[in-house]
């Protein structure tokens, strides 16, 4: 093989390597899409969950979420979709504490990470992150490859293995089979709230923040049973919002923050 062929082949190698691997090394590359606030990111939605107020046996958040999103619950552990689910957690070790510790009730949902592995994984950018912090699935673009489910370390994304049957909430879509779903912080409710606030700023006094279905249900349940609510939703960028105050006054942390995903759902009492 003479030198010209070698140079040609070497050029192809260089081009190929750059195309395939050079781009991921541009670590500054960002996959954010524009948000209503623009890239200044005035609002950053997040949630605070006070585990001490969550009670075993209550599934209000989960049921409200299913009703809102027209998700059919069949009781099948393998295929049912749970955008938010409540788990009972017990201490494993040390043995002494594990024997006497009370079990905790913990709601788990999509953490809307600031560095989401699912957004990095989606081959068509159907899973994307807005500047207002919400991680969404664009069901118009999704091809159903399920790589986002593989990439999510929190098991927060569930797949529509079957067609959903009921259509209780006619104001909302009902996903077909073949696409994954994950909690979207009720982005539709946020959009409608934003429009109401834009048209009439007085609305902010009555509704300082939008309320996702799970938070609404938790509040109702808390009122009915006379306890405090577990879920709080709000703007993490605003020092006056409920969520910011809760995080500042309590030892709050996200789940497995060590993974580097920067989750935006904070737990108190874990």
């Amino acid at each position: 093989m003479d030198r010209r062929d070698f140079v040609k082949a070497g050029g192809v190698l260089l081009a190929g390597t750059t195309c395939a691997y050079g781009l991921p090394l541009l670590s500054a590359y960002s996959l954010s899409t524009p948000s209503p606030e623009g890239s200044s990111g005035k609002r950053k939605w997040g949630m605070v969950i006070d585990v001490r107020n969550c009670s075993e046996g209550c599934n209000a958040c989960s049921e409200a979420c299913h009703k809102e999103h027209n998700i059919t619950s069949r009781g099948e552990k393998d295929w049912d979709i749970h955008l938010i689910r409540r788990v009972t957690v017990k201490r494993k070790y040390p043995a002494g504490a594990a024997a006497i510790a009370e079990p905790l009730s913990v709601p788990l949902l999509c953490n809307h990470c600031d560095d989401p592995p699912c957004v990095q994984a989606c081959p068509v950018q159907a899973t994307f992150k807005r500047d207002d912090g919400i991680v969404l699935v664009d069901h118009h673009r999704c091809i159903g490859c399920r790589y986002c489910m593989i990439a999510c370390p929190y098991n927060a994304r569930h797949f529509n293995f079957k067609e959903n049957e009921e259509w209780a909430n006619k104001n909302y879509t009902r996903s077909t089979h073949g696409v994954p779903q994950s909690c979207n912080f009720c982005a539709a409710r946020i959009r409608k709230w934003r429009k109401r606030v834009e048209e009439d700023p007085e609305v902010l006094k009555r509704e300082p923040e939008p309320v996702p279905a799970c938070v609404e249900a938790c509040e109702k349940q808390a009122l009915a049973s006379g306890k405090k609510k577990a879920l709080t939703f709000g703007n993490l960028n605003d020092p006056d919002s409920d969520v910011s105050k809760l995080i500042a006054d309590n030892p709050a942390r996200g789940i497995r923050e060590d993974l580097g995903t920067k989750p935006k759902v904070f737990y108190i009492g874990l």
Partner: peptide, 17 residues
């Protein structure tokens, strides 16, 4: 309108609904 509503979170008065 769909790109605006889904990917940017704006609008939504006019939609399929």
């Amino acid at each position: 309108l769909r790109e605006e509503a889904v990917r940017e979170g704006k609008g939504g008065e006019i939609s399929v609904n």
